[in-house]
Computed example of a mutant assay.
Amino acid sequence: MASIPAPMPPARATAIGFIAVLLWALLALFTVGSAPVPPLQLNAICFAIGGAIGIVWLAATGEARLLMQVPFRVYAFGTAGLFGYHALYFSALRLAPAAEAGLIAYLWPLLIVLFSGLLPGERLRMGHVIGAVAGFAGAALIVARGAVGFDGAALPGYGLALLCALTWSGYSVLSRRLGAIPTASVAVFCLATAALSLPLHLALEETVWPTDPATWASMLALGMGPVGLAFYVWDIGVKRGDIQLLGVASYAAPLLSTLVLVGAGIAAPTPILFAAAVLITGGAALAAWASARQAQA
């Protein structure tokens, strides 16, 4: 098994981990900006960039030697988690409105709390249940579009967004059983995801390259930030910082993401959209509060 990461002040590690939350708030914006690049091609390019960041990381930290100590099952698991989540996410935002699909995808913090409550030695409290009801009410409000009616054309995108949330929450909870691994392994996850995405793209999609500087900039920013640096700083935060505080902080991501889309003029500031954001974010925060009380009991 690989060596446990070197000690770091928890407050510093938590602050580093919070950078990931801020970067993920830009995920939907850059994904929309990268259109019309198809999902698997986008996966391959962005994770290649993320892997390149990892190579620089390895050169700076000298952790390359630790990679040989990481079991193959960890690499397979990490690659499946990153590949699955982002392939589903990019596809969802191509098939449904960005703000709505993004909010459904951001049910993952709530699902992490719920799934964790089902693990051995854990139990669900009333706060978990109420939080789950509030979160899924927000998702239902998005799908039904309030009084406007059901939008059948966007249903495939909404379904992929829900699978996206299930994928990342399942990955996050199951990763607890794999033990401590060095942050350097994230570079392998990224490069393997890129390598897996490329042949699938060539077999299933038509290659489409950006035709203007804004699209190129969005794609590069996506690979450098939300689909690159974010995974490295998050890994540091959850391993060496206050994981409960980071978990609560991650619940701000759907609201921040929605505000960014509205501010960029991509989403309209409708009451339904903000009501859904409050329900999903508030429900997840309530579930986190229930978990904190359970830990203190």
Results as ranks from 00 to 15, higher is better:
252 A>F: 15
83 F>H: 05
54 G>S: 10
95 L>K: 08
276 A>M: 02
81 G>Y: 02
195 A>K: 09
238 V>F: 06
208 V>F: 03
195 A>M: 11
43 N>Y: 08
135 G>T: 09
8 M>K: 04
262 V>I: 15
116 S>Q: 13
232 Y>Q: 03
10 P>I: 02
236 I>H: 00
154 A>C: 03
269 P>A: 10
218 S>A: 15
239 K>E: 03
284 A>S: 13
129 V>I: 15
256 L>V: 13
43 N>K: 01
211 T>Q: 15
256 L>M: 15
264 A>W: 09
109 P>V: 07
259 L>V: 14
119 L>G: 05
186 V>A: 01
78 G>F: 07
71 P>N: 02
14 T>F: 10
4 I>L: 12
179 G>S: 07
183 T>F: 06
237 G>A: 04
107 L>T: 03
152 G>T: 05
111 L>P: 00
89 Y>R: 01
209 W>V: 14
192 A>T: 15
11 A>G: 09
35 A>L: 03
122 E>T: 07
246 L>R: 08
74 V>N: 12
179 G>V: 12
86 H>M: 10
238 V>H: 00
153 A>H: 06
262 V>T: 02
24 W>E: 02
264 A>I: 14
188 V>E: 08
211 T>P: 07
104 I>N: 04
168 W>A: 04
100 E>D: 12
132 A>Y: 03
254 P>E: 11
91 S>A: 15
108 W>T: 02
29 L>A: 13
141 L>N: 01
90 F>D: 03
61 T>S: 13
181 I>K: 09
135 G>M: 06
110 L>W: 00
207 T>I: 12
152 G>C: 02
86 H>P: 07
152 G>F: 07
5 P>L: 10
28 A>H: 04
271 P>C: 06
161 A>S: 06
52 A>S: 13
20 A>K: 06
51 G>Y: 03
204 L>Q: 13
153 A>Y: 01
291 S>D: 14
101 A>G: 04
68 M>N: 15
236 I>P: 00
291 S>W: 05
246 L>Q: 13
176 R>D: 11
207 T>K: 13
261 L>W: 01
1 M>W: 08
27 L>T: 12
178 L>I: 11
210 P>K: 02
125 R>K: 11
289 W>H: 12
37 V>S: 04
232 Y>P: 01
116 S>A: 13
197 S>V: 08
250 S>H: 05
75 Y>T: 08
236 I>T: 11
272 I>Y: 03
143 V>A: 08
2 A>M: 06
165 A>Q: 01
149 G>M: 10
21 V>Y: 00
231 F>D: 02
291 S>R: 14
29 L>N: 00
143 V>C: 03
191 L>I: 14
175 S>A: 12
113 V>M: 12
39 P>I: 01
